[in-house]
C-alpha cells in the first residue's frame, strides 16, 4: 500500500506566502463568511476561494475525491435541512413564500396528511448554503496540497501556540502514514483469518463488535509505540526549555498585505453585519 503526503512543490503564487499569513487570512475569511446568508455577498467569497484553488495549481485528479466528498456531504445536509424539512433554516424563510412546486398526500390507514411546498425561498436558501459550504471547503482544501508538512509545527508556534502543542502537529504528520500502514496490515492479518469486513449483520452494537478485531490491535500497537516514542523524545530533551525551530519562517511585505487584506475584509464584514444590519437572507423579488 502506498501512503504519501498530498503536498508537492507547485511553484504557485500561493506557496510564496508565509503559511502563518495564509492561516490568518483564511480564518479571517472563514469568520466573515459565516456572518452572511446573502447570496450576493457569498458569491464574492466563493469567487475569492475558487480563485485561490486555481492559483494553487492543484489538479482535479488530485482533489476530485475531496470535492466529491464535499458535494455528497453538503448535498445530503442541504437537501434534508432546506429542501425537505426546513428545520435547519432561519425563521420565516420556509414558512411562507411562493411555491414553485407543491403536493399533498394522505397516507392510508394512519390518515396522516403530508403537505409539501417547495418555495423559491427554499431554493435560494439552499443556494446560499451551498455557497457557504463550498467557499469554506475550497478555502481550506487547498492547504494540505500547498503547505509543506514540515512547517505546520513552526507555523502554529508562530501563530502563538506553545512549543509542545505546536510540535504535536509535526508528530501527527510523522505518524499518520505509519498508522495507515499498521491498519492495513491488521486488515490483512484478520482477513487471513477469514474475517470479512463487508459483512453487515446485527444491530449497532453487533456492528461495533465486528470491527473490534481491527480497532483493538491498531490501538494497542499505538499505545506500545507511544512508550518508545516518549522515551526517544525524553532522551533528546524535548520540552525542557523553549526550543529552536530549525524551519524558519520570515514575513515578507506580501504577507503583511495578505494579513492586512484578511483583517480589513473581516472588519468590513463585521460593520456590514452588525453596524448596517446587511447580509441577512436575500432573494430577488
Amino acid at each position: 500500500m502506498l501512503v504519501s503526503f498530498q503536498y508537492r512543490p507547485r511553484k504557485s503564487v500561493i506557496e510564496r506566502f508565509d503559511p502563518r499569513a495564509r492561516w490568518i487570512a483564511s480564518f479571517a475569511l472563514l469568520f466573515s463568511i459565516v456572518l452572511f446568508w446573502d447570496v450576493r455577498l457569498l458569491a464574492v467569497f466563493f469567487v475569492i476561494a475558487m480563485a485561490q484553488v486555481f492559483l494553487a495549481r492543484i489538479t482535479w485528479k488530485e482533489t476530485h475525491r475531496a470535492w466529491i466528498l464535499l458535494i455528497i456531504l453538503s448535498t445530503i445536509m442541504i437537501v434534508v435541512n432546506t429542501i425537505i424539512t426546513g428545520s435547519g433554516t432561519i425563521a420565516g424563510v420556509v414558512g411562507s413564500g411562493k411555491p414553485v412546486f407543491h403536493f399533498e398526500i394522505k397516507i392510508p390507514l394512519v390518515g396522516w396528511e403530508i403537505r409539501y411546498a417547495l418555495t423559491r425561498e427554499r431554493l435560494w436558501f439552499a443556494l446560499a448554503q451551498y455557497l457557504r459550504v463550498f467557499s469554506i471547503g475550497a478555502l481550506f482544501l487547498v492547504i494540505p496540497f500547498t503547505m509543506d508538512p514540515r512547517i505546520y509545527g513552526v507555523t502554529f508556534r508562530g501563530i502563538g501556540l506553545p512549543d509542545k502543542l505546536a510540535f504535536t502537529m509535526d508528530l501527527a504528520f510523522r505518524f499518520i502514514p505509519t498508522l495507515a500502514r499498521d491498519y492495513q496490515v491488521t486488515v490483512d492479518a484478520q482477513r487471513a483469518r477469514g474475517f470479512e469486513l463487508e459483512k453487515t449483520e446485527g444491530g449497532l452494537f453487533a456492528q461495533i463488535r465486528r470491527v473490534a478485531p481491527l480497532i483493538v490491535p491498531v490501538t494497542m500497537n499505538s499505545i506500545l509505540a507511544g512508550e518508545d516514542i516518549a522515551n526517544a523524545m525524553d532522551l533528546r530533551c524535548f520540552g525542557l526549555k523553549k526550543r529552536t525551530w530549525v524551519e524558519a519562517l520570515k514575513y515578507q511585505w506580501p504577507d503583511y498585505l495578505l494579513i492586512g487584506a484578511g483583517g480589513l475584509i473581516l472588519i468590513i464584514c463585521l460593520i456590514l453585519r452588525f453596524g448596517l444590519n446587511f447580509g441577512n437572507f436575500w432573494f430577488p423579488t
Binding site: D228, I229, C237, K241
Partner: peptide, 26 residues
C-alpha cells in the same frame, strides 16, 4: 526499533530535533 525513535516526517528535521530542544541557535 528505529521506526519508533524517529519523530519527524523528514530526515533533516529528525536529525535536528535534539539540538532544537536544546535551543541551539538555528
Amino acid at each position: 526499533d528505529p521506526e519508533r525513535q524517529i519523530v519527524s516526517s523528514h530526515v533533516f528535521n529528525e536529525v535536528a530535533f535534539g539540538l532544537e530542544n536544546l535551543a541551539v541557535p538555528r
